[in-house]
């Protein structure tokens, strides 16, 4: 029986990851709960006045989405590393950088996508003007995919380390900053009535670059972590 083609193998991996995620539905809720709680912190910290909150809303929503993505990025490869499946993945004949895309795709579907769809609720809580909701969801859809890809690089480098949790944030937060800049800029543009298109276009360009280059770095990172 010949080994499945790379694309088919990727789809099989994606189904496997989604099946694993569905087996623990509560864990899918964790990033969303984190998002809700941190968004609720800001009115407590900055005062409930709708005016001030509206001013901060785009930044707060984006920073919270970024942090919840960071939290879940660490676990993308860790469970497979612990029970030895990651070693088998490295030995698979299919190209590793495509298989890794399946892991990141599953991670995005279970965290980023849901976050983007849920974010309008929290935007209204922070009194974000309704005109900006569309831009918010669009920028989060593209942005969280980008964050998952970059987070995957950090995860692949720290998967072998016992105390990799804190380290991953130091490694990849600097790489998250351009995404935050253009993501919240898109929402702010929509708030002040300007077109959010150009910022979303730049986010899209970054996403394409990340889809092309991040898997290579992740594959190299995994091979190094497994070899250590």
């Amino acid at each position: 029986m010949t080994a499945p083609a790379a694309g088919q193998f990727c789809l099989r991996l994606l189904r496997r990851q989604l099946l694993l995620a569905v087996r623990r539905p509560v864990e899918i809720g964790n990033p969303l709960l984190f998002f809700a709680m941190v968004v609720a912190l800001f009115p407590l910290g900055l005062g409930p006045a709708p005016g001030t909150l509206a001013g901060f809303a785009s930044g707060v929503l984006w920073i919270t989405a970024l942090l919840s993505n960071l939290l879940t990025s660490d676990a993308v490869f860790r469970s497979d590393f612990e029970d030895g499946s990651l070693e088998q993945l490295l030995l698979a004949p299919q190209p590793l950088f495509l298989s890794v895309l399946a892991y990141i795709g599953a991670h995005w579907l279970t965290t980023g996508l849901l976050l983007a769809l849920v974010s309008p609720v929290f935007a209204l809580m922070l009194n974000l003007s309704t005109a900006a909701l569309g831009a918010l969801v669009a920028s989060l859809l593209i942005g969280t995919a980008l964050l998952s890809l970059i987070g995957g690089i950090g995860a692949s480098l720290t998967v072998g380390l016992k105390r990799g949790g804190m380290l991953i944030s130091l490694l990849i937060l600097p790489l998250y900053m351009p995404v935050l800049i253009f993501g919240s800029a898109a929402v702010q543009a929509a708030v002040s009535g300007l077109p959010a298109g150009p910022y979303l276009a730049i986010l899209g360009a970054m996403l394409c670059l990340a889809i092309a280059l991040a898997p290579l770095a992740m594959a190299a990172g995994l091979r190094i972590s497994i070899d250590a």
């Binding site: 991996l13 030895g84 088998q88 698979a92 299919q94």
Partner: peptide, 26 residues
């Protein structure tokens, strides 16, 4: 290898059907 590469959350059938070693579709 030393580790059994079996996912605790999946059943044995699913473990073999979705195995990451990419050998074949069983």
């Amino acid at each position: 290898g030393h580790q059994s590469a079996v996912k605790a959350l999946l059943t044995p059938r699913e473990n073999l059907a979705f195995h990451v070693s990419g050998e074949g579709q069983y």
